[in-house]
Amino acid sequence: MEATLLPAPTDFTLLPAAPAPLTQLRRSLAADTLKLKRTAALRLTLLSGAFPVLITFLIFFFKGDIIMKTGGSPWPRFISTSWQTAGTLLLPLFVVLLTSLVVHIETKATAWKHLYAQPVGRGAVFVSKLLLILALNAVALLLFAALVLGAGLLLSVLRPKLGFVLATIPFETVVWMLLRTYVATLGLLAVQYVVSLFWRSFVVPVGVGMGAVVATIALLSWEHADKIPYAAPLGTAMAMKMEKATLTVAHELAKHEWYSLGWFAGVLVLGYVLLLRRNVS
């Protein structure tokens, strides 16, 4: 056969270079951020902090004179009441809802099959959504803290007699509480994330999460309660102490927060291994 009659050599067999892992992650994050637009997950993040602050604000607005009968700065009382209201039930439930809602964006659109057919590895998809949830969780906590301080300052205008003065805000305690509370939510966040990815439904992770939160409350007096990731935010909220009329908290992670970090790392590794080679139907 004459060489000139052969079809032009096709170059389609040249293997294109796969995008670098960090490029894949950056692209996934860019897409995931766009998908957050107009979602319940985003609204929940922006509004969740308001509820516990509003309750505490109303208590102090109407009954502040009774609470502050003994005098002193109202900030420690105000901050610890807000934080405990949030930490007991609301914060774990927020994390449960947030993770479920973010993962549900893909499930609702039947987009897992589409997502995994794109030139990004499963690792990038897994890490991208995790980073997004971690960021939203951080935003919600920061908003909560800002609302607590803002509500106190508003009370200083509306109820000047209560003594909310800017100078007496225990900033250092607030910053440490933010950091420690964030760490305390990580364990249950990882569990909920993997559960959401594994079952790919909204009902299952929310059901598991609510069940776990309720069961945790029943188990609080158990000697191993500090090992339950769903109990950690409450443990941290209870770690604040009144010392010499100011609010203090240890500048280090407590045992239950280390357990939370352990759950976070362990569950994520396990979840990633489980999900990496899974069939997508």
């Binding site: 766009l34 107009r38 609702k108 659109a109 039947t110 099959k113 589409h114 057919a117």
Partner: peptide
């Protein structure tokens, strides 16, 4: 394009 298109209804 696999079966029904994967579309985000809120977008």
């Amino acid at each position: 394009l696999i079966e029904n298109p994967s579309l985000y209804d809120h977008l």
